[in-house]
Design a protein around this nucleic acid. Structure first.
Lengths: 239, 239
DNA sequence: TGATGTGAACCCATTCACAGCC
DNA sequence: GGCTGTGAATGGGTTCACATCA
């Protein structure tokens, strides 16, 4: 059931080597930039240009892309379309991943309706909640089911990615259920550290946590005196 | 209880040295755990316990905490209350940071109403939008103002943290306005890379990006054959 | 005894610099 | 000439292991 009719090029012996975590985290950024370039009808791009647009340096771009294979042309740059395709393929975005959302509260509903999910090869095949009052309401085109049905949904729809959008005090239960049902990757919006078996992937999105980091930086800035403008007005993308 | 009772601890000669980025990112996690421990009426905690709860190892916890100063007791562990206080102080959470939200769409409104913001020393002092139809509606207790008033709000309320919740195509404008108005840190929910002057802090929250990373891992898993249970059932907290 | 705090070793990520190819 | 791809060098982060101290 490897859907999607086999593509033309792909690779002879797909290396399928592990891409370093740090580089992996930047691939989606490059991808988004490349997509914009396509809209702009730009067909070639150099590592230097990509680097500027991604606010990193050119060596990093080249190194990152080199993990995928050698898809550039020396003296020229990268073909935007081709590179786009290769990154998508590497990330597994040429197939459509079913995801299930646990928690049909404000956040869960927002996520189910979030176009960013469906636009990129993901589609929500289920939303569950413990609260029976929410059952059978339709959110983002999907009917809310009871949490007890989670396992059945995961298995029948072959779900391998779960999103936890429950309150903190139910998040671990949600994770346990997801893992038991066979999900291999979890995106966690609850502000707790999930305890999962080795091999299960968790990514955490935590607004308050990020804000606290900004708070630290702002405190440093203020203590360093001079809340006002620093006079530093270079707008190069260094960072 | 003995902590922060008698004297005005704190400073002495606070080095205010830069905490390494990686360690900084974990402090809010420890903080959240410590808060839970307080609720649980736990008064002492060892690096080992903290490590388990945070899903990292004990050496990392100790090293991270050592950047703050030496607040533990050898042979005993850390006093939960005291350590909590010290982390909060270090992160600047003992003051209340005014933040401004740019974009009063679904996301902006959700953020304005998000309790996680106000619960931790942040408070929304302004929401602006370009869309005049949204003006003067009240969201999260704050009246939506026109984007033109952003600068005035930032300056009158001494805002140093801005949140960008606009569509992608307005995000750079929003960032420019924020920076020009004097904001030093930006949390960006728009799926683009912001171009800001050096010295301005940006943190990006991007759901689609995170999902794409999970997609990669799932693809690896599936290719490595065996979608089903890996048999790997250790539930130790190793990542 | 038991757990912290920390140099030292190790490992991964970033950057440099240049060989190789267009 | 210009730009990629990549070993080598550098730097930062993690882990180890143990001296240190309540």
């Amino acid at each position: 059931m490897r859907a999607l009719g086999n593509s033309v090029w792909v690779m002879s012996d797909t290396p399928r080597r592990k891409i370093p975590e740090a580089a992996l985290g930047r691939l989606p950024i490059y991808l988004r930039i490349l997509t914009d370039l396509i809209v702009n009808e730009t067909s070639q791009v150099s590592s230097e240009q990509l680097a500027d647009l991604a606010a990193v340096n050119a060596a990093k771009v080249r190194k990152d892309l080199s993990y995928l294979g050698t898809y550039g042309t020396r003296g020229v740059g990268y073909d935007v379309q081709y590179l786009t395709y290769q990154i998508q393929r590497e990330l597994g975005l040429n197939q459509s991943w079913p995801v299930v959302i646990v928690g049909a509260g404000n956040l869960g509903q927002a996520l189910a309706n979030f176009s960013g999910i469906t636009e990129r090869g993901f589609h929500v095949v289920g939303i569950v909640d413990k609260d029976t009052s929410k059952l059978e309401t339709v959110v983002g085109g999907v009917r809310v089911k009871h949490a007890d049905e989670l396992s059945q949904i995961v298995q029948s729809k072959n779900v391998s990615i779960g999103i936890i959008a429950t309150p903190a005090d139910h998040a671990q239960d949600a994770a346990d259920s997801l893992v038991k049902a066979g999900v291999g990757s979890i995106m966690n919006f609850a502000p707790i550290v999930l305890n999962v078996p080795a091999g299960v992937n968790v990514r955490k999105v935590d607004l308050a946590l990020e804000l606290q980091i900004l708070s630290y930086y702002e405190q440093c800035r203020h203590e360093g005196r001079g809340i006002g403008s620093t006079g530093d007005h270079s707008d190069s993308v260094s960072a």
